[in-house]
């Protein structure tokens, strides 16, 4: 965990008293997705945000990404207030959001192109990131020719290629099958070990949170608030299957479940199924 930390003045992300409301078209009242959400993300850490579905954790990510503006509160990234998307952040989406008319290679270029930063220098990194996510040989393939896991590799490479200091991951592996998910988790841990980015990773899977995170922020059900932040006391590199038998793992898992279980009942929703 220690090597993931970076010395430095400002936290990577600081959110203070953030509230987000959505208009509901059919109802008069507003839907409060986040309320007084306060969280500090350390530079270089891998922070997992875990909560039941609909708790507002993705909303928080969108606020940090600059895609959504809070009704109240403020968010700073590296000490600067967020006023929209920026080159220091990149998002990996649950639904991949790849351009279907672009090949793998051109999709990986996409982020740089949107930022108007695609030039000789930045073009040279494309093959590196394609290789990093294990897609060498698929440069000319189109998204429709790829499996879900491979598509998300493209999504990851697209985000990494812009070399953001903060990687925002919105349930990136929720739509891939369980086997692929484990492989992807291991590789993500390896890749971030190399690139040393700050990661905010949204998930509803407790196991995923423990396997990947340095710290885990447990979010209450709507309106979303931080209930507790728990460090993961398991050294890296972690093997998803092996660490599951450690007492640190099972203790932490029970603790998170306890925190979430009360919340899930409050939601009056079917609890999410887990994969274990």
């Amino acid at each position: 965990m220690a090597e993931h930390h970076r010395a430095g003045g400002h936290p990577a992300v600081r959110a203070v008293d953030v509230s987000v409301e959505y208009d509901r078209s059919r109802e008069k009242d507003k839907l409060v997705a986040l309320e007084n959400f306060t969280l500090e993300v350390r530079a270089g850490e891998f922070l997992m945000v875990v909560g039941a579905s609909g708790c507002g954790k993705s909303t928080f990510l969108n606020v940090v990404a600059g895609l959504l503006f809070p009704a109240k509160g403020q968010v700073w990234v590296h000490g600067e207030e967020v006023r929209g998307p920026g080159k220091d952040r990149a998002v990996v989406f649950q639904d991949y959001a790849l351009m279907p008319w672009r090949s793998v290679e051109d999709n990986v270029k996409f982020g740089l192109e949107m930022q108007r930063r695609l030039n000789g220098d930045t073009k040279d990194r494309i093959p590196h990131y394609i290789e990093l996510v294990g897609l060498s040989g698929f440069e000319k393939s189109y998204p429709r020719e790829l499996s879900g896991g491979m598509r998300q590799r493209v999504g990851l490479a697209r985000a990494l290629a812009t070399e953001p200091s903060i990687l925002l991951m919105d349930e990136p592996f929720a739509a891939v099958d369980a086997l692929t998910r484990e492989v992807m988790q291991e590789e993500l841990a390896r890749i971030i070990g190399e690139t040393k980015q700050t990661v905010i990773f949204i998930t509803h899977s407790v196991d995923e949170a423990i396997t990947l995170g340095d710290r885990i922020a447990v979010v209450t059900s709507r309106p979303g608030r931080i209930k507790e932040i728990l460090p993961v006391p398991i050294p890296r590199p972690r093997n998803g299957r092996e660490i599951r038998h450690l007492s640190e793992y099972t203790d932490l898992r029970d603790r998170i479940w306890e925190l979430l279980a009360g919340e899930t009942r409050l939601m009056a929703r079917a609890p999410e199924t887990t994969e274990s």
Binding site: G66, L67, P85, V91, F93, A97, F110, G111, M114, Q115
Partner: peptide, 12 residues
């Protein structure tokens, strides 16, 4: 909409 959002997230 998800493609538009992705492009916006990169600051398009």
């Amino acid at each position: 909409p998800s493609l538009l959002r992705a492009a916006r997230s990169f600051g398009a």
